[in-house]
Design a protein around this nucleic acid. Structure first.
Lengths: 152, 152
DNA sequence: AAGAATCCCTAGTAAACTACTAGGATATGA
DNA sequence: TCATATCCTAGTAGTTTACTAGGGATTCTT
């Protein structure tokens, strides 16, 4: 039940982006420097976020990334699902039998997984990027904390 | 954010155990047969559940396992944590700096992980084994559904 | 037009983890 | 004593993760 670095780094990167892209596009290089994440790896995460429609890119010199929509319309859930895929703890929510599950409605644990899934999604969807940016700005050390030491 | 087979199989096994151990101890062999889980693998899961104090074992012929406490005192959370370890999506909840995180209180994402963690734990802790056993008994096909096809 | 700064795309890979399997030791009831 | 159980340790093929590497394409600046 762990989140991978994709989700962890990616959310940090997007908060950073939201915070700095108000004036001009933010380059991978600058996010990488502030957040202590490898440029090359971050590149891949940004690509995923772009495909998910959360950010837009501007190519060429002085280019970079900006949010594709308002920060209050982007939830933590949007970000994590874009990077981690579905957040459901067990993949048998769909009623398809493709997953080899023929129990249909007659499976007790399915109900358990469904409830966990619902609670996770509700929680991540009610947290929006703009709140996090505000909290981040209110914090003393942001951008100054020991880079590269925190993997979360 | 996926649960491994440990958690999935383990919960199924424990529901099965709770259901059949009212009269006599239940052997790994019989759970294995009903649930379509490898005996040898199930053995390891049972060992973990035992170490966590959720079940007790009775060795020798006619032995098997029984619950260590009342089914209504065992939560889904107890089972999953015993098998999967902590369910927290990111391990930086403790205020120790051991994890290489020196951000202490000044980390925005930490707050996010904490909220997800809380919601997961609340959800899994309010589901008790006795409820699941009741639901399971109320279902038509339990014990008859195609064994080995469902991995969840 | 040249060059630098960007994003874009595919592929490779070491390390870790998962989901088992295997072999045997130990305990207990009939 | 034998069959039936749990117990314990170790091995291992396959998958996934977290990157690194090597380019190519686009755009601004000079």
């Amino acid at each position: 039940m762990k989140l991978s670095t994709k989700g962890r780094y990616g959310l940090r990167a997007l908060i950073d982006l939201a915070q700095y892209s108000e004036i001009e596009p933010v380059s991978i290089n600058s996010i990488s420097a502030r957040q202590g994440i490898s440029e090359r790896y971050l590149e891949q995460l940004m690509s995923m976020l772009k495909k998910a429609g959360l950010i837009k890119s501007i190519r060429g010199a002085n280019g970079g990334y900006i949010l594709a929509k308002n920060a209050k319309e982007i939830s933590v859930g949007d970000v994590l699902r874009a990077l981690e895929g579905s957040l459901e703890p067990v993949e048998c929510s769909g009623l398809q039998e493709e997953d080899g599950c023929s129990a249909a409605g007659g499976c007790v644990t399915k109900y358990v997984w469904q409830r966990i899934n619902d609670s996770i999604n509700q929680t991540v969807d009610e947290m929006k990027l703009d709140q996090l940016v505000m909290e981040s700005k209110a914090m003393p050390d942001t951008g100054v904390f020991e880079q590269g030491t925190c993997k979360n």
